[in-house]
Design a protein around this nucleic acid. Structure first.
Lengths: 244, 244
DNA sequence: ATTTATTTTTAGATTAATCTAAAAATATAT
DNA sequence: ATATATTTTTAGATTAATCTAAAAATAAAT
């Protein structure tokens, strides 16, 4: 079924009869661009998302991005000026957070109910997030018990797009003797998730810092009071933990 | 994400590297055409599906159907000869039944787990059925307890595409005094489902025949040993029941 | 402050999916 | 059996999403 606007004979509007920003029907592609722009805008101090950054994130040619930016701008989902990069409008941001909400709720479902491993779920959630039914999201959320964090430890936005915040710190920041409980990853790379799985490290795992090695900035740690192991700087930088 | 073939530089095949008929990636549209052809072929004694029948089922112009038939034929999913109508190949049939399997499993999920009413789920399942992940289907099926019939009473094909058969009979066939348990509808029209819901008739409802009225071929029935009511010929013809 | 490099946009094509209108093939009816 | 009606296909356009290659704008460097 094509997911684009239905244009009527009498009305040349871009929106179907009775539509508004909150029930606008977008193509999967448009949705994916909005998510990419949202993600880039969140990264460190990126004020605006540049064409090239979007093109890298989406794996498309820069020229294709320019085309799409014009379309999204026409639909008032982004603020766009030639050569200046883009920001999301209020409406664009609300579409993006709704998508992230759906993605993370489905990830939670896949792990909690269908017992997938957390490194197998991304691609499936990527498809499920485009299913368009507000009622479905509401019921799924209730069914799952209104979860606040997904299986990667990422916050699930609420119905209004507000992200719950959790005090997370990179494992690298802890001092020898301190203990952290893994609550998330800074980046959800497949390689990292495979590596962690192999070492039976997952969300909730208790990690005790044994030693900092100055030479390569790596760590020696103890996992769940069981095995001791070394963690490279790159790995430990990407592990987000909660202390207490 | 576009759901079409990935063509490689070295290979001009229509299928991605290492693909076969069982993991061929089709567009949503191609999938919907296959479903439509399957449905038409199942209807009474339709040997082949005609262009016009498909165009009616899909709500598209006949010319668009002709285009698509050529594409599906190129992919060996249908047997097509100009002006002769089409049949599904073994591969086409297997794609179609896999879609129906997913559709009905998701409908079961929506009703059993998320407590949707059975007249609200079709459009959502229509979207969910296109999510492509064999592992997801397997796990969903296990999670739901390997159900054999969906909430409309329609059979759910198994992993091999085999439909469970159930002895179903039109309510109209029962004689006064006989009792049937509603197991399905002959056609899943919204209007019929609304009507049944309003009269608290659903899958599993016990219906006792009180009287046949010759004049308009309508029935007087008793619902779940509670209220008595009349059912028009059109309604009772569409109610499929199991007797014993 | 020019030159060089990078980024972004335009221009022109392609593919999938759709349409309308007209032509060709098949089926029906007198 | 010929004329009429219906069905199906072709022809030609359109829109969304993509591409490559070239031009234009902006940023960086000497």
């Amino acid at each position: 079924m094509p997911l684009h606007f239905v244009l009527t004979a009498t009305c040349n509007s871009k929106y179907p009869k009775g539509s508004n920003f909150y029930n606008m029907v977008l193509t999967h592609t448009e949705e994916n661009y909005l998510k990419a722009i949202f993600k880039i805008s969140e990264e460190d101090g990126n004020e605006t998302a540049t064409t090239n950054a979007i093109s890298a994130e989406m794996n498309t040619a820069a020229a294709s991005v320019t085309d799409m930016l014009r379309r999204l701008s026409d639909k008032k989902l982004i603020n766009y000026e030639k050569y200046k990069g883009v920001t999301l409008t209020k409406e664009g941001k609300s579409v993006a957070t709704a998508l992230i909400r759906k993605h993370r709720l489905w990830e939670f479902f896949l792990v909690e109910k269908l017992h997938f491993d957390w490194d197998e779920i991304h691609d499936i959630a990527e498809q499920l997030e485009h299913v368009n039914s507000p009622e479905l999201v509401t019921r799924l959320n209730d069914y799952l018990g209104n979860p606040r964090f997904d299986p990667h430890g990422d916050p699930i936005p609420d119905e209004n797009g507000n992200m719950p915040v959790r005090e997370q710190v990179s494992l690298l920041r802890l001092k020898p003797g301190e203990v952290g409980k893994l609550t998330g990853l800074r980046n959800n790379s497949d390689q990292l998730m495979k590596y962690l799985k192999k070492n039976s490290i997952g969300i909730g795992t208790k990690i005790t810092i044994l030693e900092h090695h100055e030479f390569d900035e790596s760590l020696s740690v103890k996992i769940d009071d069981k095995q001791e192991m070394g963690l490279s700087n790159k790995v430990s930088k990407n592990l987000l933990v909660q202390t207490e």
